[in-house]
Simulated assay, not measured.
Amino acid sequence: MSALLVRAVGGPVLVQDAGRPGHAAIGVGSAGAADRASYTLGGRLVGNEPGAAALEVVLGGLEVEADGHVTVCVTGAPAPLEVDGRPEPSGAVLTLRPGQRLRLGTPASGLRSYLSVRGGLELPALLGSRARDTLAGLGPEPVRVGAVLPVGTRAPGEVLVDAVPPSRYDAVPVVRVVRGPRDDWAADPDTLVTRTWRVGGASDRVGLRLEGDPLGVVPGKGELPSEGALRGAVQLPPDGRPVVFGPDHPVTGGYPVIAVVVDADTDRLAQLRPGEELRFRWV
């Protein structure tokens, strides 16, 4: 069996797949790739079955060495790539020979890149998934220097294209939202869509913590019992600064959900860096 040997890491590197949905009743969230479209594209490019495990890399810095012949592709945030010091395009399907090293630089835009490997990463599964849940501490540990990542042998699909164009991201994305079940807890819910918000430095896979002029909270509402939560829920804490749940969100939450991001747009949120801006639009 081939493997990838981890020689360097920069930002966080996590093993992710399509997640483990269906376990909220026992307190386990779905987790999985934060940018599902980029993760899925990478798996298709290398001919993997749906759900194969890949690496989610934050702001580049990862260097891996091939132990055997390994076919890989990097999607998502367009990190500059080098194979043994030779530049390669992001989005290209590459076959590494034994001993060759692939290095991901810092992407010019976006936050998370996905390193997909033909055959997937063959790590122990928990509840049917190899995804790392950072909130619950489930799944494979974050990838460290010296780690050996076995590569699976099951990849029945063909490699049909050599490369895809790199991802491009608009400077201030406009994210679609629908009204949430507790929008009456905001003094004026429409202020959510009339303001420009900034991604706070404490944002992570659990949620984006937004900064800006706080929303007004209706006084005298009392305490809201915990309710079921989902990815894309926009919570309104007492300080009036919204939090948008990400893939590692808790399965319940006690703050009112005033809006919910359209599911397809949550992938774009996964590529926002702290300090970048975004806006919302009702649909």
Rank of each mutant, 00 (worst) to 15 (best):
R279C: 06
L96E: 08
R241P: 07
E82K: 11
G212A: 01
T71C: 06
N48F: 04
P225F: 00
L59Q: 05
G119C: 02
G10M: 02
L96Y: 06
S226M: 09
A229T: 14
Y114N: 06
L160Q: 13
D183W: 03
D267E: 05
D263C: 09
T75E: 01
H249F: 09
E211K: 07
A229W: 13
V6I: 14
A171I: 12
A187N: 02
V177D: 05
G11E: 00
L102D: 03
A3S: 15
R273Q: 04
E276D: 04
E56G: 01
A54V: 15
S203Y: 02
M1S: 14
P140H: 02
G110M: 08
V164T: 14
G128D: 04
Y255L: 04
S203N: 02
D248V: 06
V64Y: 03
R268S: 07
T153H: 10
D265I: 08
A259Q: 12
G253I: 06
V199A: 05
G128Q: 09
R154N: 14
V117E: 03
Y39L: 11
D183R: 10
P173V: 06
L278K: 06
L210P: 06
T191S: 13
L96T: 08
T266E: 01
I258Y: 01
R268Q: 11
E49M: 13
A25M: 12
D133V: 09
L230Q: 14
V15N: 12
S30N: 13
R118H: 04
W282D: 05
A108P: 10
R154C: 12
V244I: 15
V145F: 05
A33K: 03
G47K: 00
S129T: 12
D17Y: 05
Y114K: 06
V217E: 05
G32D: 08
L127A: 12
T191Y: 06
L208K: 03
S226R: 08
P247V: 15
D265A: 13
D184P: 01
D263E: 15
S30W: 11
E277A: 12
H23M: 12
P142V: 04
E158C: 06
A25H: 15
A31S: 14
R241V: 07
T71A: 05
E223T: 13
V70D: 06
D133Q: 09
R101F: 08
P12D: 10
S226K: 07
W185D: 01
V178W: 10
V164S: 09
W197A: 03
V117T: 15
P98W: 05
Q100C: 04
D35H: 02
P78Y: 04
M1T: 13
F280Y: 05
G228N: 07
G19F: 09
Q271V: 00
A24P: 10
V9D: 10
A202E: 15
V74R: 07
P189W: 00
G32Q: 02
L224K: 04
G105M: 00
D263Y: 11
T40G: 11
G157S: 03
R101L: 08
A202S: 14
V161L: 15
L14H: 13
Q235P: 11
L115V: 07
V83A: 01
G61Y: 00
D67V: 11
P181A: 00
G120W: 11
A79E: 00
R36P: 10
P219L: 00
P87L: 01
V193K: 11
E223R: 12
A33C: 13
T196A: 06
V143K: 09
V58T: 15
L272Q: 04
G10E: 03
P98E: 09
A187S: 10
V244L: 11
